[in-house]
């Protein structure tokens, strides 16, 4: 089976820091891959390279067989790769609903100079998506007034507006209180529902990883330490020592 996303020998340095050291991954459509590793291990750098925010010093990235290494965030998004952010990237002075309408407008190809942004049809679609994320109660509120967890969800909802093929979630549960993490991930998985989305998510909480990932990739100082099914990777001695910190 041809991989939907394939990274080949990615290298990236920031001064003396090696953020990616020969990173190669093949992702098959439909997988839910969790990227784990301590802070600075290179997970976010990997996500940033895949989505075109950072250019790798060496190596190539293929999306459905097409070389996308040189493309920027916009072109990669147009090819069906969406992402959420560690720090949610929202329009803070707008309402939740307007943020969703921005997302709807941006994906419509050529932006219209005269067709209104607030058509019945677009409002309905935005409202429906907000409801799937349980955000409909907040839709008129200004984003700046919302608690962190709600912003995280909105960030993901915006990313999902255009039915991406691949969704990258950068620490979806960071900043969310311990007892809200599972409900939040449940909401996200429920919202993904029957849609055939390949998901990569960066995560620190191993309980979340075991519950939601079909595959785990462990990073350590820019390298991939282990890659495989959760029950294999999480018992690996090296992973225990360097990543999960559960070695005795």
């Amino acid at each position: 089976m041809t991989p939907i996303l394939s990274a080949r020998g990615l290298n990236k340095r920031f001064g003396a820091v090696v953020a990616a050291d020969h990173v190669s991954i093949d992702i098959v459509a439909g997988e839910h891959v969790s990227l784990i590793g301590s802070n600075g291990a290179g997970k976010t750098t990997f996500v940033n390279m895949i989505t075109g925010y950072l250019k790798p010093d060496r190596g190539e990235i293929f999306l459905e067989g097409r070389d996308v290494t040189a493309l920027g965030p916009r072109q990669i998004t147009q090819l069906g790769v969406a992402r959420s952010f560690q720090i949610p990237q929202l329009c803070a002075e707008m309402s939740v609903l307007d943020n969703m309408l921005v997302a709807a407008a941006c994906g419509d190809g050529a932006l219209s100079f005269w067709r209104p942004a607030h058509t019945r049809d677009k409002l309905d679609r935005a409202a429906a998506l907000l409801e799937r994320f349980g955000l409909h109660l907040h839709s008129r509120r200004r984003v700046a007034e919302l608690p962190g967890g709600v912003r995280k969800l909105l960030d993901i909802a915006m990313a999902l507006t255009h039915r991406p093929k691949i969704l990258l979630l950068d620490e979806p549960t960071s900043g969310v209180s311990a007892d809200e993490k599972f409900p939040m991930m449940d909401t996200v998985t429920a919202a993904l529902g029957s849609e055939d989305v390949t998901v990569l998510f960066v995560e620190h909480d191993m309980d979340i990883v075991t519950r939601y990932a079909s595959r785990v990739v462990a990073f350590y100082s820019g390298r991939i330490l282990a890659d495989g099914a959760p029950d294999q990777v999480l018992v690996d001695e090296e992973v225990k020592r360097y990543v999960t910190g559960s070695a005795h």
Partner: peptide, 25 residues
Amino acid sequence: YFESARGLVSLAIRENELRVEYLGA
């Protein structure tokens, strides 16, 4: 124009340009 899709995206650029690029515009 201000009420149009493009007008709304203009406002969004003012607030968060990066997000707009990451939405494909």
